[in-house]
Amino acid sequence: MMELICPAGTPAALKSAIDAGADAIYCGFNDETNARNFPGLNFSRDELRKGIALAHGRGARVLVAINTFPRASAVDIWHRAVDDAVNAGADALILADIGVMDYAARRHPNQRLHVSVQAAAANPDAIAFYAENFGARRVVLPRVLSVPEIAEITRESACETEVFVFGGLCVMAEGRCSLSSYATGKSPNMQGVCSPPSHVVYEQTAEGTKSSLGGFTINRFAASEPAGYPTLCKGRFSTAQGAGYIFEDPVSLDATTLLRGLRDAGVTALKIEGRQRGRAYVESVVRHFRHALAALESGSETDIASLKPFTEGQASTLGAYRKAWR
């Protein structure tokens, strides 16, 4: 059966994920070394040690995301994160930067390494580079590939593949996007926070709720209109061709209906996005996919509750998995 990899932004969410049936939980330290560096989120060193002990006691694994790119003057912060995660008993490290990966491979040769989605390794040659040079065992594939492309990559790669099945959907080349950096001066890829809340403003106006980021208006939602995250890639803009979503609608990825295809493609693990979400999200989404996987294994039909209430914009998409464009 494919593994279910679940998000946790807090120790309580980690416990919820275990209770709901996660095979593994991914999380990060409460600093700039992970790509969900939001206020009040993530794990101290002590919390990580305790979280790993709890997970191991319940038969689950913990993968630690150290998946931002170090600043030239502060590489030590990332190296320390690697050492501390290994010493805490992490089952794998999820890394993006080749320098950090090289450090981890040399310093901790027995540690299992995964290639983060932030590395944007989207073809067999790129994946082979990580596997051959650093012994990476798994790659988290970017959300820009169709299911046949995933099957081809998996067939040609020595690495296991892991793909996202639910949650926020980056439409840009991951780890390369500078939209939020341009608007706020803070980089999702180096400081670990896309659309930092310190730069987000919600304003109630006569026309509805206006959201802006770093002084740029992103969207205006009428009173009953579903909303999305205040990210520039999902903003509604006025252009010469008219007003609308020019990059991507505010929607969440939901690949529940594609699980059979992903299994047949040889995918090893399914990942749920959302370390920034609450326990209610983690519990419901993990349970949903646990049931869906059980139904897939048994070949039975199952009536699974909709995840629509959790989706951005109250809408879902199959994203690039079922690509009708190129």
Binding site: P226, A227, G228, Y229, P250, Q276, R277, G278, R279, A280, Y281, P309, F310, T311, E312, G313, Q314
Partner: peptide
């Protein structure tokens, strides 16, 4: 979930 309540 707080984000879900914001979306709705």
């Amino acid at each position: 979930d707080g984000d879900a309540l914001m979306f709705s």
